[in-house]
Design a protein around this nucleic acid. Sequence first.
DNA 1: GTACAATGATACAATTAGTACAATAAGGAG
DNA 2: CTCCTTATTGTACTAATTGTATCATTGTAC
Lengths: 140, 140
Amino acid sequence: MVEKQITLQLDFRSGLPIYTQIVNQIQSQLVNGILKPGDQLPTVRALALELRVNFNTVARAYRILDEAHIISTQQGRGTFITEIPPPEVSEKLRAESLLELTDRFLSEASRLGFSEREVSQMVRDRLKSRKEADVQEKDE
Amino acid sequence: MVEKQITLQLDFRSGLPIYTQIVNQIQSQLVNGILKPGDQLPTVRALALELRVNFNTVARAYRILDEAHIISTQQGRGTFITEIPPPEVSEKLRAESLLELTDRFLSEASRLGFSEREVSQMVRDRLKSRKEADVQEKDE
DNA sequence: GTACAATGATACAATTAGTACAATAAGGAG
DNA sequence: CTCCTTATTGTACTAATTGTATCATTGTAC
């Protein structure tokens, strides 16, 4: 069986539950083409083993994604990305996933006591230095 | 689970409330490097048992530390020293931490295919809506 | 004695783990 | 090919572990 080898980065110390992190990351990877419709995801047990979590935690994430019609889980067969995500849904998901990612970032920063001002300043700075790095690459 | 075995010396006759003593000692152990960012603290029940106090007293201490962004408590999971030290511990470390956090966020956004424009726009939006939510809270 | 802060008791909620089960697929016996 | 057995997969239910919320009790200062 050819399950897609997916890479998830869990942070066990972030305030976010594991199952939420799995949901978010799979959703993001779909929206941005890393996962594609029809792809088979790892089995609940395989992914659980890889992530060192209980397989029910993965199952819970899969159930949430299933209820959102993002994946289709089939007892005895496996779990697949749904074939036809309507474009509008896809675009909506894309926006949502950036929103979620951003909110996670801002929440974490806030939780750590950084002010809004510090955060926005740092985002500007780092975006700027990234752009400069890009330009340099092109020059070479 | 591997909770850090921490040693606290309570003085029940000092007049200082237990929860204050717990707060102070955890804080100073962090400052002194005995506790490190990412460490998991004992559960409220385990520490309470060890200290022979009610677990609500420990919970109260943890809540105070949480509000000071020194630890992060997660229902059903446990309690952890925050990854990033509060300002009084080290201003330099703190700045570096925000940088790392921001870079992780920007890298992830980039990996997922979002443009710089989309990202900075979303950060502005969400900072704005957070500010509005805060104002509302204060009104109540 | 009253008021207030600290602590304790109890019930609750969220997350994760354990166990047994059901549906499907796969492979072999006949 | 058909039937049976077994392995694989997701599901359901329950238990264990964790922090939270609320109220009661205690003790101390006035």
